[in-house]
Design a protein around this nucleic acid. Structure first.
Length: 329
RNA sequence: CCGGACUUAGCUCAGCCUGGUAGAGCAGCCGACUGUAGAUCGGCUUGCCCCCCGUUCAAAUCGGGGAGUCCGGACCA
């Protein structure tokens, strides 16, 4: 697989295509980053961008993982001390999951975001940005809560982190695109180069197929789940026998989260997937690419229940090494 | 700083006037039906009624004080 293909596979969008092509022409030593608010437990939402970081490392990129302790604090996630402890735990989980510890630079936000220069640049960005724009860019606002000033500063710090970390490529889920667009708009005002950005798709809510999966509301699969928990969660997932389900009664779009996880988590990390099936239903099936599996589900050749048991097995194999490594500590 | 509205289940809210041991919808959980899930049907759970003080046999409900949120007004030295 060439560099361009590694960089762009399974990406929902890149901004811009020309800039990505330029990076792909000479990826060695270029720096990519993702920022995470420390939440303690790595789940398959985080792992989706982590997969992309692994792709980028393979393509020759240097990778920075920002453990955004200051951001978490601004977003009312607890005391600094508690947040830093979860940040450490999360770093261990990333390494256990498969990020190369030697090629990955883990940075705490508080390592550089409290410096004088940073603060003054931040104020300069505040001057460039309306409250409405900042609020729109803030992906992490809990709906219904009243917005704090800290939450308006939050996306501006995300923008400013990019030049301070020397990032060429900013990576994030699609919910981060407004932040990256804000960064592209506003960084030139302080004579900083705006980032190229790459956004991964969002996996839909496991139970309903609607919206995005979240660890706070609803069900997610994490690095800490036991085999039996994974089986139960996957079994309970929404999975009609199609890749393109009809909208629900209220007109909300639905996705098939089981297929999404196959596409974005399983096939990128495994060469082939075996679906074990009792003889009465036709015996085992083997797939080497996602498209073939999707086509069989669509045609009825592959029953959702069999797809689910294969998914649970693959996910368990994906996270078991990390899970065991963390238990040994 | 002044004024108004609001605060009840995880969420959106009803109940308050006229005190009598807390309700609906949604969500959640369980079961039936599907070789998965969803849909559908049947059942079930959930509460510091914002806090404190008072009145009363009895307060979510009445009176006083306080807090939080939202909206408006004033101030603009």
């Amino acid at each position: 697989m060439d560099a361009y293909e590694l960089i762009t596979r399974n990406a929902a969008e890149v901004v811009t295509e020309e800039e990505i092509e330029a990076l792909a022409d000479d990826p060695d030593g270029k720096r990519a980053y993702v920022g995470y608010e420390p939440s303690g437990v790595l789940h398959i939402g985080h792992m989706l961008t982590a997969n992309k970081l692994i792709d980028l490392q393979e393509a020759g990129f240097e990778v920075t993982v920002l453990l955004a302790d200051v951001h978490a604090y601004l977003n009312d996630k607890g005391s600094f001390e508690a947040i830093r402890r979860t940040a450490e735990r999360m770093r261990d989980q990333f390494i256990a999951y498969g990020l190369d510890a030697d090629k990955t630079q883990f940075v705490l936000g508080s390592d550089f975001q409290l410096e004088d220069d940073y603060t003054l640049d931040l104020h300069a960005l505040e001057l460039e940005t309306t409250l409405a724009r900042a609020e729109r860019a803030m992906a992490e606002i809990k709906s219904g809560d009243s917005v704090k000033v800290s939450q308006a500063v939050y996306p501006l710090m995300q923008a400013l982190d990019i030049p301070y970390l020397g990032v060429d490529l900013a990576v994030g889920g699609m919910e981060q695109r407004k932040v990256h667009m804000l960064a592209r708009d506003v960084l030139p005002s302080i004579d900083r180069t705006p980032p190229t950005s790459l956004h991964t798709p969002l996996i839909a809510d496991l139970a309903s197929g609607i919206g995005k999966m979240s660890s706070s509301t609803g069900v997610t699969i994490s690095m800490e789940d036991a085999t039996a928990e994974i089986e139960e969660k996957v079994n309970k997932a929404y999975c009609p026998p199609t890749a393109d389900p009809d909208p629900d009664d209220e007109g909300r779009e639905r996705e098939n989260p089981v297929l999404q996880i196959f596409e974005y988590h399983v096939f990128p990390r495994f060469d082939s997937v075996v679906v074990e099936r009792p003889d009465e239903y036709g015996g085992d099936l083997e797939y080497e690419a996602y498209d073939a599996l999707e086509a069989d589900l669509e045609s009825g050749e592959l029953h959702p229940a069999d797809a689910k048991s294969a998914l649970a097995d693959a996910l368990d194999r994906l996270i078991a090494p990390g899970r065991e490594q963390l238990q040994d500590q």
